[in-house]
Amino acid sequence: MAFFADTEALYRILGGFFETLTTAEEGQLIHRVGGPVLFLYHRPEGRLLWSPLPPPGQRPAFRVAYGDDAAGEPPLLTFEQDADTAHRFWLGEIDLAQALARQQLRAIGPLSRAMKLLPHLDSVYPRYAAWVAGGGPA
């Protein structure tokens, strides 16, 4: 059974978690990527966009756009995956190299920019687990 019952749940839980990152220390990492990052989801369908808000150091560091609102800005990087894969990724349960090799995750664009973030995500995974355990946004 899919973790996200529908697109609304996807946006509320995962989108809501992304909103918390916009003001977190780790949110500043978006500036290392250097452009918008689009996440395309399937089962349920959805799209979320991280759009950087310069200058670096300012909070929020990026804006989260949902659905059709996420389609207006050309992304630098696109990640396409099942929503369940995304859920497991943010729990820290996905081996990125294996997921790419099995096409569970498709990455379009300069992947090296995103890889800079990986060593910094260890502190983010438990926060997502806690967010999910708490039922998402208050």
Binding site: P110, L111, S112, A114, M115, K116, L118, P119
Partner: peptide, 8 residues
């Protein structure tokens, strides 16, 4: 070159 992206 970043084609094989690893941490720096």
């Amino acid at each position: 070159s970043g084609d094989l992206p690893l941490p720096t």
